[in-house]
Computed example of a mutant assay.
Amino acid sequence: MAVTADITATYRGPRKVIARLLSMGHREDRLLAFLMGACALMFIAQMPRLAREAHLTGQDLNMLLGGALLGIIFIAPLALYAFAWLSHMLARVLGGQGDGFRGRLALFWAFLASTPILLLNGLVAGFIGSGPALNGVGLLWLAVFLWFWLSGLREAYWGRA
């Protein structure tokens, strides 16, 4: 199934999608592609906000984009790998069965599947700016991300897979 179809299916039932992805076998290259795709979309989502900031403050847009590129594309994946390891250790302490691949899949897939709302957040930040609309979309993204991630962890460590 295409990644876009899996993303839309995740909004209907995240555990089913994680179970299907787990049944495809342990492929670390697939996880890295999920993570880097999500980071690339996160960088794209930041562009409208950074353009607004550059326009309002008079800063150079290229410098802002370069800093965001460094942070999101190069540093964030390392931090997310560390966070996935911590969540794996916590799941094991809580009685979960499985390896680190399962924890990485749950986290990276939740991040990728929630990027459509992250893109909306970037548009709201770029066109409207700070305020209740941006806070609402940010909270919506956080809620959806946590829903996908916790459902994925539940399926990966305690589910049928």
Results as ranks from 00 to 15, higher is better:
residue 108 F to T: 02
residue 2 A to C: 11
residue 73 I to M: 14
residue 107 L to C: 11
residue 48 P to E: 01
residue 65 L to H: 00
residue 41 L to V: 14
residue 75 I to N: 02
residue 62 N to D: 08
residue 104 R to K: 14
residue 30 R to K: 01
residue 105 L to G: 11
residue 50 L to A: 09
residue 67 G to L: 02
residue 51 A to N: 08
residue 63 M to S: 13
residue 35 L to D: 04
residue 101 F to P: 13
residue 52 R to V: 03
residue 56 L to R: 15
residue 79 A to G: 09
residue 20 R to Q: 11
residue 30 R to H: 03
residue 11 Y to S: 05
residue 78 L to I: 15
residue 104 R to G: 15
residue 48 P to N: 01
residue 93 V to W: 12
residue 37 G to I: 07
residue 50 L to G: 03
residue 83 F to W: 02
residue 94 L to I: 02
residue 74 F to V: 03
residue 32 L to D: 03
residue 93 V to D: 06
residue 32 L to M: 11
residue 4 T to G: 08
residue 27 R to F: 01
residue 81 Y to P: 05
residue 81 Y to F: 15
residue 53 E to M: 13
residue 33 A to K: 04
residue 16 K to D: 15
residue 15 R to K: 15
residue 59 Q to R: 10
residue 31 L to M: 05
residue 2 A to N: 15
residue 66 G to N: 05
residue 7 I to A: 00
residue 108 F to P: 05
residue 33 A to P: 00
residue 40 A to C: 13
residue 50 L to V: 02
residue 32 L to E: 05
residue 47 M to Y: 08
residue 82 A to V: 14
residue 64 L to N: 04
residue 67 G to M: 03
residue 73 I to W: 08
residue 32 L to Q: 14
residue 99 D to L: 00
residue 58 G to V: 12
residue 60 D to Y: 11
residue 78 L to W: 01
residue 95 G to Y: 00
residue 108 F to M: 09
residue 31 L to Y: 09
residue 14 P to D: 01
residue 8 T to M: 07
residue 2 A to W: 01
residue 108 F to C: 05
residue 16 K to A: 15
residue 25 G to R: 10
residue 105 L to R: 03
residue 101 F to H: 04
residue 34 F to K: 05
residue 2 A to M: 12
residue 83 F to M: 14
residue 4 T to K: 01
residue 102 R to K: 11
residue 87 S to W: 12
residue 110 A to Y: 09
residue 84 A to F: 02
residue 103 G to S: 12
residue 48 P to D: 02
residue 52 R to Q: 07
residue 59 Q to C: 07
residue 102 R to W: 09
residue 54 A to T: 04
residue 112 L to E: 01
residue 3 V to K: 10
residue 47 M to A: 12
residue 13 G to H: 10
residue 93 V to Y: 06
residue 14 P to S: 10
residue 46 Q to H: 06
residue 105 L to C: 13
residue 21 L to A: 06
residue 24 M to K: 04
residue 65 L to S: 01
residue 7 I to Q: 00
residue 10 T to F: 08
residue 80 L to V: 12
residue 40 A to L: 14
residue 16 K to T: 15
residue 84 A to M: 09
residue 42 M to R: 07
